[in-house]
Design a protein around this nucleic acid. Structure first.
Lengths: 376, 376
DNA sequence: CCTGTTGCCGAAACCGGTTTCGGGGAAAAT
DNA sequence: ATTTTCCCCGAAACCGGTTTCGGCAACAGG
C-alpha cells in the first residue's frame, strides 16, 4: 500500500494531460492516486480529510507547482480572488502623484494573499455607479476599495444595499458616531495634523491663524476643519470666522483664498491648509503681494505632494503614507470578504510632519502686516 | 410553433433559476425555448446558426440583460477578457503624475470592448519577471501592456518567447530597423519634438544649444538624442560633444548637468531636455548662479508634467497625451489577442508644443554669458 | 458477537459556459 | 419517388474546479 503510494509519487512518466502546460487538479489527483474531490477538500481545509493526506496533498501540490485557477474556482464559489479599485476622474486632480504608491501597496499585499487587483475608472458620479454595477454583475471582483470618501457617499450606499464587501480610504457620514456606522475603513487622522499645525504656529508666536479648507462634499473637509478649531482651543486662541476659507482644492483657488485673507484689516500671519495644492497657490498670491513665505506669512500644508519639497522655501507639510494605506486597505478588504465583520475592520494612522521652511516666527504682527500691505 | 415561441418569450413567470440574481445562459435558453448550445453558438458568431435565430437570441439576451461571465467562458476558452499592466516602481519616479490619465484611457477603451484591466506592481527587474510569470500561469490576463520600454527589454523577450500577446508603450531594440522587429507598439515621436525644440531655439537666435538626456537603458533616450542632433543639422549648427549631458532623470541630476554646462568656457544659451524633471532642476541651478530662465538661458522640456505650468517662468515643453496612449495601447492589444499580427499593430503620435516663458531670444551671447558667470 | 459511531474518502452532481458530433428536415439533385 | 446535400439545431462531452452524498472500514460500546 505504502509502496504503491511512493511509487505513484515518484513516477515521472505519468501521462499528465496538460492544459497549456499547467498542472490541473486532475493531474495532481492522478499523481497522488486519489480522487480529485479529496484533493480539492484537502486544499480547502475541509475537516473530513486526515492530517496525513492533507500534508501529502500540500507537499505534492507544491512540488508539482499546482495552483488552482481562480476563475475555475469562481464558477462554483462565485469568488474570483480579486479586489477592485474604481478611480473617479474629476478635473481638480487629473494628476494624482500618489496613485502609483497606493497601487503598489494594494498590489503587494493582494498578491501576497494570492489575490489580484483590477482597476477601473469613472468620469462622473453616475458613471461610477454604472461601473460598479458592471463589475459586480460580471463578478469581476469580490470587493471594492473606495478612495476619497464623501460625507454622504452614493457608492457606499449602493454597495451596502447590495451587500458587496468594500473598504473606504477615509471615513464617511461625518457627524454619525463611529459606533453607529457600519462600514470598514482606513484613514489618516488629518484632524490631528490640523490641530498640530495650529499649536505649532501658535508656539512660534502666531496670534492670528487662517485656515483654507476643501470642498464640503468630502468627509475629510469637516474633520480637518474641526481639527483646526481644536487646535485654536488648545492654543488658547479665539475663533474668528473671517479667517476661515472653504472650498479650495486647486492652486488657483488657494491663491484666491489667500488674497482674501490678506485683504482683511487684521490678516493672519500664519495659514493652515487642508491640502497642499492650495498651499502652493499661496506662494503665488503672496509673491504677487510682495510678501515672503516663512517670514511675513507662515504656511503649513497637508498631503506631502512632491512639489512641496521643491517649492521655495520648501513647504512644511504632513506626509501621508499612501503606500501603507493601499496595503492596509487591501488586507482589510480581503479579511472582510473572508467573513470578518466590517465594523471590526477599521484602522487609522497619523500623518507625519515634515519640517521645511515655509513656517517660522512671525516677522510682523498682524497690524504691521496690514500696514505693509497698505503701502503697496 | 410561432405561437409557442411568442408565448415563451413573453412569459414572465418562468421559474428562472437564479444564480445570485444573474441571468445565465440556461435561463436565456429556457426562455427562448432552445438549447443552450444554440444560444452559445449564436452569441459567438458560429456560421451554423440561422440569421433569424441569431437575431432572436441577441435581442432576447439584451432584453433579459444576459451577459456571459468571463471567467465561466475562460475555463473552456482560456481567455479571461482582461488586460494586464505591470508597473515597475523605481526610485526616480515613485510619483507618476500621468498614471491616472493612462489608466483612464486604457480602462475606458477596455471596458468599451467588454474587457477589464488588472494592474500589478514590481519592485525590480527580477520581480517583474516573477509577476509576469504568475499572471500568465494563473491566466489572470490575456495580454500585457508594457510601459517605459528599454532598448533591450527582458519583459519583451520573455513574453515573446512564451508567445503571450503584448504591446509596448514606446519602441524597443533601438538600432534595429522596424521592418525587422516583431512587436507592436504605440509611441510618441520624442525625436521629432527634440528636433523641433532645437530649430525653435535656433530660430530665436541661439547658437550654442545644450542637451540633457536620460539614462541609456531606456529606448527613448537614444531616439531623443538623435532627434536633437537632427535638429542641429537642420538648423545648420555644429555638434559639440561638450554640450551633451546624459543620464539625468531627477531634478537634482538636471541641476547638476546644467551646472556642468554653465561651467564651460562657452556655455550654451539654450538647453533642450529629454524630460521635464531635469529641466525643472535647471531652474534651481540657474537661480543659484544668478541667471534668469528665459532671458540668460532658455530651457525647453518634454513630457508636460503639471509642475511645468507652475514653474516661474512657465516651462515651455512638449505635452504628451497620456490618456490617448492608454486608449490606443488597449485597443492594439485587444486586436492582437483577437488574432491580428503584431507587426501590423503599430502607431505613433506627436507631442504637442506648449509655449510658455522659459525660452526666448538670447539676452547675451555665449561669451557674454561666460563673462557674466565669471564675475559672480 | 453484534450494533452504532466516527473518521475518511470516492463517486457523482454541479457551476456556467464552449465545442464536438450527429441527426432531422427541407430543398436540390438524380 | 428516391437519394443526396445542406442548413440548422439539440444532445452530450468538456473545461477545472467545488460540494454533496453515501459508504466502507475501524473502533467503541453493549
Amino acid at each position: 500500500m505504502s509502496a504503491i503510494r511512493n511509487n505513484s509519487e515518484t513516477l515521472e512518466a505519468l501521462p499528465l494531460r496538460r492544459s497549456g502546460g499547467r498542472v490541473t487538479i486532475n493531474d495532481l489527483a492522478a499523481h497522488l492516486g486519489m480522487s480529485k474531490s479529496t484533493v480539492s477538500r484537502a486544499m480547502n481545509g475541509y475537516t473530513d480529510i486526515s492530517e496525513t493526506t492533507r500534508k501529502r496533498v500540500a507537499s505534492t501540490a507544491k512540488k508539482l507547482g499546482y495552483q488552482p485557477l481562480s476563475h475555475a474556482q469562481a464558477i462554483r464559489t462565485g469568488r474570483v480572488r480579486a479586489l477592485a479599485l474604481v478611480l473617479q476622474m474629476d478635473e481638480p486632480d487629473r494628476h494624482n502623484p500618489f496613485l502609483q504608491e497606493f497601487l503598489m501597496g494594494a498590489c503587494e499585499t493582494a498578491s501576497g494573499f494570492g489575490w489580484t487587483l483590477t482597476v477601473s475608472t469613472a468620469l462622473s458620479d453616475a458613471d461610477m455607479q454604472r461601473v460598479l454595477e458592471r463589475l459586480i454583475d460580471e463578478r469581476k471582483a469580490d470587493g471594492f476599495i473606495l478612495p476619497r470618501t464623501e460625507v454622504s457617499d452614493p457608492r457606499v450606499a449602493m454597495l451596502r444595499e447590495r451587500n458587496v464587501p468594500h473598504v473606504m480610504f477615509g471615513r464617511t457620514e461625518h457627524g454619525v458616531p463611529p459606533a453607529q456606522q457600519s462600514g470598514s475603513w482606513y484613514d489618516i487622522l488629518g484632524e490631528a495634523a490640523m490641530c498640530s499645525a495650529v499649536t505649532r504656529l501658535a508656539g512660534l508666536g502666531h496670534q492670528r491663524i487662517g485656515y483654507v479648507g476643501s470642498t464640503e462634499n468630502f468627509n475629510y473637509t469637516h474633520l480637518r476643519r474641526e481639527g483646526f478649531k481644536a487646535g485654536l482651543s488648545a492654543a488658547g486662541l479665539a475663533f474668528d470666522a473671517d479667517l476661515m476659507c472653504q472650498g479650495a482644492r486647486t492652486r488657483a483657488e488657494g491663491a484666491d483664498a489667500v488674497r482674501g485673507l490678506m485683504a482683511l484689516s487684521t490678516p493672519p500671519t500664519g495659514i493652515v491648509f487642508a491640502t497642499d495644492m492650495p498651499a502652493l497657490g499661496a506662494y503665488d498670491a503672496l509673491g504677487d503681494l510682495g510678501l515672503s513665505v516663512g517670514q511675513d506669512v507662515s504656511l503649513i500644508g497637508y498631503d506631502g505632494v512632491p512639489e512641496a519639497e521643491f517649492a521655495r522655501p520648501g513647504l512644511t507639510t504632513y506626509n501621508v503614507d499612501t503606500r501603507r494605506a493601499g496595503a492596509r486597505l487591501a488586507e482589510l478588504l480581503i479579511r472582510q470578504i473572508r467573513g470578518e465583520a466590517p465594523e471590526t475592520l477599521r484602522e487609522v494612522s497619523e500623518a507625519l510632519l515634515v519640517e521645511r521652511h515655509s513656517d517660522g516666527p512671525p516677522a510682523l504682527s498682524s497690524e504691521e502686516l496690514a500696514a505693509k500691505l497698505e503701502k503697496m
